[in-house]
Every structure is written in C-alpha cells, then in structure tokens.
Amino acid sequence: MIFVDVLAGGVRGGTAILYAALGETLAERAGVINLGTEGSMLTGALAAYAVTAGTGDPWAGVLAGACAGALLAAVHAFTVLSRGANQLATGLVVLFLGAGLTSMFGAAYVGRAISPFQPYPIPGLSRIPWAGPILFDHDPLVYASYLLAPALWWLLFRSRWGLVVRSAGERPAVLATYGHSPLLVRYLAVVGGGLLAGIGGAHLSTAYANAWFENMTAGRGFIAVALVIFAAWHPLRAVGGAYLFGAALALSPALQARGYGFNQFALDALPYLVTIAALIVLGRRQTGAAPEDLSRVFQLTPTR
C-alpha cells in the first residue's frame, strides 16, 4: 500500500527534521535564529554514530549526539550574543565549522557497522489498520518525539518558564526590568535548540540511515529552519510540517520500489520546492506572528 508506506516513511524520515525544528522553535522564540542547525545535526549524527559504534548502545550515542549539537550551538550563541555578530551569517559559518569537523573526524566511521535502534511496534496499537503502521511501528526516538512536541508547547505557552523565554524574544528590555537576564535566557535557548538538533542528527545516523557519510543531513537543518517560520513558531504545527517533508523524502524511494519511471532528481528536489511553496503561501501571514525582536533580524539584515 503505497499511501501507508509514504506516510509511515514520512513519520520516520520527518523525525530528524522534527527534533531540529522543535529546537529551532525554542531558539527563535527567545529571539535568535540559528542557521547552524544543519551543523548541529551533522555533529550530532557523527557523535551518535561514533559513540554507538564504540559502546554498542545507541542510547549512549543519542546522549553524545545531543551534547555535540549543543556544543556547536554554543559557538553560535557566543558569537551572536556575546560578540554581537550577524545571526544569519554566523549560523552559516557555524554550519561550515560543523561540516569541516565532521568530515575531519568522521572519515574513520564511513562504512563501519553499528547496532542501531530497532523498531519497536507498540503492542495493540500497531495492529490498528492504517494508523498502526504509520504511527506505532517505529524506533523509540520517534515515540519520544510524540511526547516532546506537546511538552515543548506546554513549556512555552503554559509555564512561567516559557513566558520568560518568549519575553526574551519579544521585549528583552522589559524582561530585564523584571530582574531576568535576557542574555542568559537566549544562551540557554540556543544551546537547548542545538541539543535537540543533535538528537535529530542522532536519529538520522543511528535509527534512519544507520550509516555515517559526509554531509548526510543534506539540507534537513535548513528545512527545519524554514519549517519553524511557516509553523508560525508553534511546536505542534511543526509536527505536521516535519512529516510533510518526511513524506516528500519518502516518496522517491517508494515510487522507485514499485518501478515507476520518474526522474529521481525531480522527486529529490520536491522537499525543497514544497518548503519554498509553503513559505510563499504562508509568508505574508506568518511574519506577523514572528517574535518581535526576531523579526528585526528578518527585515533588511544589517550586513556587517
């Protein structure tokens, strides 16, 4: 059933994007955009793969991936927040750093076998026709993301902690008068975002592809950043978007497996085109929903 295959593949392939998008939602809610998300995913993917190869335990790998992603995001946070550099340009340079470091230290792991995450069908639920194979026949990191998205929504919109984060993105000056440090809040949000992106990378290398190769994220981090914009900085809407891109990624192999004669590259371009189309449709409406301090970054960017 191709429909179920594509949707199940959408959930599986969209999970890495979902983690990164949730992390980026956190950072952007605090007023910092991090294009280095792609780099955090890459370092997360390699660290997770290397540690899984060394210890045989993919959970240790996820921990390492989260730390690596957070560490790279800390470089972005420092350069942007403490040194006042342009956010978009710094993010790209951080991506370069991540890409360079992972190709430098990752060459030894290309083609090496690991014991990856195994799918764990949830008893009972996975038997439901349609929904079962689509939602409940995956690896544990997918299930964890089901819980993470609502949890992040609750934290951001229903807790005092979330109010502080959102204030840092809207009116940092006001937050400062209440005795909080917007700088600290932004640091934590950016590093936390990198941590989640690192987990996304870990899912890619230890549960989805079960391999490591240079630049294996192939733009998923950029898609995650775009996704945050058209999800209007809302964690729950990001879920649907992430699975849409996952499905676009899953469509090409699903069609090829059935022998349809499509030009593979037209399909490979699909996720990026879908992202651009979504930004066009939602662009005007959504920019009003941007955290106020962040929208200044998006307008004509000061280029120095």
Partner: peptide, 8 residues
C-alpha cells in the same frame, strides 16, 4: 537585554 536587542 536592551543592549542585546540594540546590537541587532
């Protein structure tokens, strides 16, 4: 925080 915003 004002300085963080102003820098951007």
């Amino acid at each position: 925080g004002a300085a963080v915003g102003a820098a951007e």
